[in-house]
């Protein structure tokens, strides 16, 4: 049975979709079968970031309403053959997602894939709660600023109460992914520091993605950053985060810490 991950944040624009695509591609590069599922019905974006917008025929809502089979809606990535996309519908809205329908789709996906990564819409309404409902673990995407941190805190509360795991009395595994981190601005006090965010949210850190134009460039090219340029700093941070998702224990490097970066590059080249 595959693992279901929800990528969520509460606040919009913090990098959920970018992170879903990047982590999905990073996990799939080892040959593991990965599907990224867009739950943002009505405002779909994951297809763009994955570069599959022209190949969408059927979508999640079609499958849920029984208008298409799951195999018809799944889109195989052109670069990685073990990476798939289940797109959201752009013309419908989130009321079309039913609990039973989502149950069925996720159960089916879990049978076929090693990783099912659900890209949650922003907010705490139906779309977001359905995206997190079946998760085994959660990646909470947070920017180092107060409103994003508070929204993430709210989402963590929901992960502990509104998910199947919580209803069964189990604990949801939650990981913090700090994105758009700029060490210079954090040092100046314009941004929250890593320790401040960790102190407030008190969940384990899975990675720090540096603010970088590489991320935007990759998105505009229609490629997950881990596929577009595997050697750039954000891609490397996503690769490390993916390894931690698999359960590896790696020390976290704070981007911008010069020695850290050099050490990492050097370490990689030497290996």
């Amino acid at each position: 049975m595959g693992k279901v991950i929800v990528v969520t944040s509460g606040k919009g624009g913090v990098g959920k979709t970018t992170s879903t695509a990047a982590l999905g591609a990073a996990l799939a590069q080892n040959g593991e079968r990965v599907v990224v599922v867009d739950f943002d019905v009505g405002l779909r974006n994951l297809d763009l970031v994955m570069g599959a917008e022209r190949r969408v025929v059927y979508d999640l809502v079609n499958v849920i309403q029984g208008e298409a089979k799951l195999t018809q809606a799944l889109i195989r990535d052109k670069r990685l053959e073990s990476l798939f996309l289940l797109p959201a519908s752009q013309t419908r809205d989130k009321d079309n997602l039913t609990t039973e329908g989502v149950d069925r789709v996720i159960t089916e996906l879990k049978r076929v894939f090693d990783w099912v990564i659900c890209d949650s819409p922003a907010g705490i309404e139906r779309g977001a709660t359905l995206a997190m409902r079946h998760a085994d673990m959660a990646v909470v995407v947070t920017n180092p600023e107060v409103s994003s941190v508070r929204d993430s805190d709210r989402i963590i509360g929901l992960l502990d109460s509104k998910t199947l795991k919580a209803e069964r009395g189990e604990r949801m595994e939650k990981h913090l992914l700090l994105t758009r981190y700029d060490s210079v601005r954090a040092e100046r006090g314009d941004m929250l520091k890593v320790d401040d965010v960790l102190e407030i949210l008190s969940i384990p850190l899975i990675g720090i993605i540096p603010e970088s134009s590489d991320v935007l460039r990759a998105s505009n090219m229609g490629a997950p950053v881990t596929l577009a340029d595997a050697r750039c700093a954000p891609a490397m941070a996503y690769f490390e985060a993916a390894r931690r998702l698999r359960g590896e224990q790696l020390p976290i490097t704070i981007p911008g810490d010069k020695r850290g970066i050099f050490g990492k590059i050097f370490g990689r080249k030497a290996a």
Binding site: R150, D151, D153, G157
Partner: peptide
Amino acid sequence: PVRSGQSVIFPEGDVTIVGSVASG
């Protein structure tokens, strides 16, 4: 921790939280 948006209501007595109480 008590997360943003959560309420702990206990009229019967004392409340002890081993963790933080978040903004909101």
